[in-house]
Amino acid sequence: MGKITFYEDRAFQGRSYECTTDCPNLQPYFSRCNSIRVESGCWMIYERPNYQGHQYFLRRGEYPDYQQWMGLSDSIRSCCLIPP
Rank of each mutant, 00 (worst) to 15 (best):
E39G: 01
Y66C: 03
Y17R: 09
D9Q: 13
N50M: 13
G14N: 05
N25L: 07
Y7S: 02
Y56F: 00
R15K: 12
A11D: 12
C19P: 10
G53E: 15
G14T: 02
K3H: 04
E62P: 02
Q27H: 03
F57M: 13
T20D: 08
W69L: 15
G53Y: 10
P49I: 15
C19W: 09
Y46C: 02
F12E: 04
F12Y: 04
I82V: 03
Q13D: 09
F12I: 03
T21E: 11
C19M: 11
T21C: 06
L81K: 07
Y7L: 01
G53W: 05
S16T: 07
Y7D: 00
N25R: 05
E8G: 04
D9W: 10
T20S: 11
T20F: 13
Q13T: 08
R48I: 06
I36S: 03
E18S: 07
F6T: 00
S16V: 09
S16E: 13
R15E: 13
R15H: 14
G14K: 05
M1R: 06
Y51G: 09
E8W: 02
K3M: 13
R10D: 07
Q13M: 08
Q52R: 04
R15G: 14
Y51W: 05
N50I: 08
L26Q: 15
Y7G: 00
N25D: 10
D9H: 15
C19T: 06
Y17K: 06
Y7V: 01
T20L: 11
C23V: 14
V38I: 13
I4E: 00
P24D: 12
A11H: 05
G2W: 04
S35K: 00
Q13G: 12
G53K: 12
A11P: 04
S16R: 08
Y46S: 01
S35G: 03
E39D: 04
P49C: 11
G14I: 01
I82T: 02
G2R: 11
C23Q: 09
Y7H: 04
S35L: 00
T21V: 06
I4P: 00
F6E: 00
G41S: 02
L81Y: 05
R15M: 08
L26E: 01
F30R: 15
I4S: 07
Y17P: 00
N25T: 09
Q13P: 01
C23A: 11
T5N: 02
Q52D: 08
Q52N: 14
R10N: 13
S35T: 02
Y7E: 00
C23R: 08
T21Q: 10
P49G: 14
L26N: 06
